[in-house]
Design a protein around this nucleic acid. Structure first.
Lengths: 164, 164
DNA sequence: GGTGAAAAACATAGGGT
DNA sequence: ACCCTATGTTTTTCACC
């Protein structure tokens, strides 16, 4: 296989998924390589697009965006070109856009300040994308953005042995 | 108001949401404060829980988890205590869990290696949580995890002026 | 809150195995 | 591919405003 991920790369990815600001020193310690070897691998992972970037996880409730919702989109005119994601991209309240199998075509995840802001956003979505919408309001988020687990590689699998 | 976010903290959060590995030096430059002032503010944001942590964004397709789905959960026994999130927590394939308003009670987002892995996971979810499930398979993800925009504060709003 | 400077830790590049 | 060493940067703490 060509695109498969080596075990050690999987562990690096798992560690960084759990702690994006982990230092190369600590990372090296955790996966059992030297700092430079780890650094090299991380750069390759970034280059290959396995690591797409780094982000701080922000608590939406504390920054004035307490209302999250999932909005399912159904095209009104089936003859239209399918460029919905592009049309939705300019709306910054839309955090994610998924093309899905099912009665509806897309699901987007949105974050807004209030019910009236959601109302306004839905109107914008319908207008800019020419779709009908079905909205599911999130009441609470027990957990979110959990670090990936790839092939049994959890962040705390290995600790480097001393080599003195 | 007590919990409201200052403008400069909002900008810090926005920058770190867009680039979680941004150095304090660069951050200080972008928001127009000294390195130590920014560092102090970031620590306070972390402490207050505004910044919940940092994560590398991993491309699921490249690490052997190409299949994403949203699974809606409906409790079978309405008399049961509502501890579904706790019961789902041990399943690492579940990346997020939302309590929602609507016909169903929860929506969880899952990542798996294959259709058969999805089938197995759904069986596990039904068994451990005593729910019925409705699954929407993600065909593609035009965009995801876009950095937050809080009160007009985008990462590239301000650059520090030289003070020589 | 904010600043600036010093010490410690870290990132990064080069050369060797 | 990996390790080690050397250099420049960044983080972190601290005394002061």
């Amino acid at each position: 296989m060509s695109g498969m991920l080596e075990d050690i790369d999987a562990r690096i990815a798992a560690v960084l998924a759990a702690d994006g600001r982990c230092s190369y020193t600590e990372l090296a310690d955790k996966v059992g390589l030297s700092v430079s070897a780890v650094h090299q691998r991380v750069r390759r992972l970034e280059q290959r697009g396995v690591i797409r970037g780094y982000a701080a996880r922000i608590d939406g409730e504390q920054i004035g965006l307490p209302l999250t919702a999932f909005v399912s989109l159904t095209p009104i005119d089936p003859a239209e070109p399918d460029d919905y994601p592009q049309r939705l991209l300019p709306l910054p309240q839309i955090e994610a856009c998924y093309s899905v199998a099912g009665v509806e075509s897309y699901i987007v995840k949105v974050r807004v300040a209030s019910p009236s802001a959601l109302e306004a956003l839905l109107a914008q979505i319908r207008a800019t994308a020419n779709v009908s919408t079905r909205t599911t309001v999130v009441l609470s988020t027990p957990f979110e953005d959990r670090p990936i687990t790839v092939g049994g590689a959890t962040p705390e699998s290995t600790t480097r042995a001393e080599h003195t």
